[in-house]
């Protein structure tokens, strides 16, 4: 059994999905933690996004993290490409469909990972355009920098504030985050099953953690644009 055979088998392909999925979950944890620093504003009226801007600067200027970023993009691309390929392959296994579909046996979001993933992908494009492209390349919306203790850096906080001042952007972000939540609701526990976790003790635990994580991450991410929109912060 060569590695190629392993990773091109149906189980191997799922392993790729599961492993990349779990690494993306880890990325979400990091992403959400750093972004949560915007809420420092709530506790300190002098803050004005300082902690967040510093954190963003650290992420953008550390070599190791930039290297990891490449890995992250690799993972995302692998996850997307493999996901589409698998969906396509799986659909081809039943040329003549049913007149009455079987729906009771599984959750709608478990059956709709492809659709949810596509929504997330579209959202991701917009999201990258808003922040990542601006920060790295175009500098759009970041013309005025801030400086703390003599270190000059992007005012990412300001960019967020500006971006989320529009209702439609908030709605698109919410849709993206909710899709992500449902994607995770299935994907989180599914990834661990694919990696072979079968003991009742751990599966029960992972299912609960998975649901908890999906809800939590969705709320945290939605709360940010909402807070800016309603002027709670910024």
């Amino acid at each position: 059994m060569t590695w190629k055979q392993v990773f091109t088998s149906s189980v191997g392909k799922k392993l790729v999905m599961g492993l990349t999925g779990i690494s993306l979950v880890l990325f979400l944890v990091v992403h959400a933690s750093i972004n949560a620093t915007v809420f420092a504003d709530l506790f300190n009226s002098e803050e004005n996004g300082e902690m967040f801007n510093k954190a963003a600067h650290f992420m953008g200027s550390t070599v190791l993290i930039r290297i990891m970023e490449i890995g992250l993009f690799g993972g995302i691309i692998l996850h997307i490409a493999q996901g589409y390929l698998l969906s396509l392959e799986n659909q081809q296994k039943r040329s003549v469909g049913y007149a009455v579909a079987y729906k009771d046996g599984s959750k709608w979001y478990s059956r709709s990972m492809g659709l949810l993933g596509t929504i997330i992908l579209l959202f991701l494009v917009l999201h990258l355009y808003h922040f990542w492209v601006s920060a790295r390349f175009t500098n759009k919306g970041l013309e005025e920098s801030v400086s703390y203790n003599g270190v000059e850096m992007h005012n990412m906080f300001g960019l967020m504030k500006a971006t989320f001042s529009e209702w439609w952007i908030f709605l698109v972000y919410s849709l993206g985050c909710i899709s992500l939540g449902y994607h995770l609701a299935h994907g989180f526990q599914s990834a661990f099953r694919t990696l072979g976790v079968h003991n009742k003790r751990y599966t029960t635990m992972l299912i609960s953690i998975g649901y908890g994580f999906s809800v939590f991450i969705t709320l945290v991410f939605i709360l940010m644009p909402l807070s800016f929109l309603l002027g709670w912060i910024g």
Binding site: V11, N90, Y102, S110, R111, M113, H186, F192, R193, T194
Partner: peptide, 24 residues
């Protein structure tokens, strides 16, 4: 046959209630 995406439809319909944990 296709790949498994852990939706659980198989377990729900199995006449002998074979558990999804077998797949894991």
């Amino acid at each position: 046959f296709g790949a498994c995406t852990n939706t659980g439809a198989c377990e729900a319909t199995c006449p002998k209630e074979i558990s999804l944990s077998n797949i894991a």
